[in-house]
């Protein structure tokens, strides 16, 4: 998989040996193995120390400890990421922040946050490993178009964060006329303008999905062979979504699940719908399509849209792994 190889490039840049082959290794089915859980705290111990530039670095790493390299070490252990704000409501970024203390853990241990208009005083998009792009692109706005192109150039991995970036969502309904730029009327999901590597749909994407993906991405970069295989399997469906397209709505549920004879009336779609447009009449989803904002949450939440036994059968050990990784 192209993305996986590119991740390995980043990974190697970070000076960590990779034992796994370049193709994603198959995951043993239903193997709630304990090792991933145990491996994290063990690995994490030195990293915690390194977060504090004020503390003189001790000799945990094989490198000779020099006081003047203390700024370098913590950065090299993390990946760099940023938030690119296109036309969105900032709700996706709020969802990220809604991990509360978890966000601090993410920033402490796994990610260096290098670009974020709302939080960081950096004006131009820097080089980064992962760009989380929120919002769709207004193609009538020169700067927006330049920025999304720039994002693709500067970021190794582009993640479409939230339903506007992935599917257009509510911005699909824009007809312009808003002061002070009434001519801004045409908006496209970022996948219509650049190649996107990972989709995180949802309006807004849930804080826990963002968290899970962050931890999986970290394990992919820093974990042992088992963890890498697990993280790859976990991320695979989200990496496949961009190939599927840049639009989704309740109709996808009809076309690809109900009409295909796959619906089992479980109710996941109705639970996922952020505008309560889906009810169940006699056990089958009915969408009030006038209410549908085209976020794609119903389709993606459905167990019959895409489902990986390899991943979901290991739900217990995966959740434990994530919990362990998120311990402050």
């Amino acid at each position: 998989m192209g993305l996986f190889e590119r991740i390995l490039v980043i990974f190697q840049k970070k000076d960590v040996t990779v034992k796994t082959p370049q193709t994603p290794a198959p995951i043993p089915v239903a193997e709630p193995a304990a090792p991933p859980t145990e491996a994290i705290p063990a690995e994490r111990a030195p990293v915690v120390e390194e977060q504090r530039p004020a503390v003189p670095p001790d000799e945990k790493e094989p490198t000779t400890a020099q006081p003047d390299i203390k700024e370098v070490k913590p950065v090299s252990d993390k990946i760099t990421a940023g938030h690119v704000h296109m036309s969105g409501c900032t709700g996706c970024e709020v969802a990220l922040a809604d991990n509360y203390a978890g966000l601090l853990t993410l920033l402490d241990k796994y990610v260096d946050w290098v670009y974020d208009l709302t939080l960081i005083d950096v004006r131009h998009i820097p080089e980064m490993d992962v760009a989380l792009v929120e919002g769709s692109v207004c193609i009538n706005d020169r700067i927006s178009v330049e920025e999304i192109r720039e994002t693709r150039k500067k970021a190794k991995i582009v993640v479409a964060l939230g339903s506007c970036a992935t599917y257009g969502n509510i911005t699909r309904f824009c007809r312009g006329g808003q002061q002070n730029q009434p001519q801004h009327e045409a908006y496209l999901p970022i996948g219509d303008l650049i190649k996107v590597d990972v989709y995180l749909p949802g309006c807004g994407p849930s804080p826990q999905l963002i968290r899970n993906v962050c931890v999986a991405a970290y394990l992919l970069l820093k974990g042992n062979a088992d963890q890498q295989a697990l993280a790859t399997a976990y991320l695979k469906p989200l990496m496949m979504l961009p190939e599927r397209g840049t639009s989704a709505c309740f109709c996808d549920l009809m076309y690809e699940v109900i009409d295909q004879g796959l619906c089992i009336g479980c109710g996941a779609c109705a639970a996922a719908c952020p505008v309560r447009a889906i009810t169940h009449e006699y056990g089958k989803p009915q969408g009030q399509r006038d209410l549908c904002i085209k976020c794609g949450a119903c389709y993606n939440q459905c167990p019959r849209s895409w489902y990986s036994f390899d991943v979901v059968n290991q739900y217990e050990s995966i959740m434990e792994t994530i919990d362990a990784a998120m311990e402050p």
């Binding site: 849930s206 804080p207 899970n212 469906p237 639970a271 794609g296 119903c298 959740m319």
Partner: peptide
């Protein structure tokens, strides 16, 4: 299956997992 998928991939299940 829907619940476990929802816990791992909570697309529209904020704070549920």
């Amino acid at each position: 299956q829907a619940i476990r998928k929802g816990q791992l991939y909570p697309v529209g299940l904020r704070d549920v997992p």
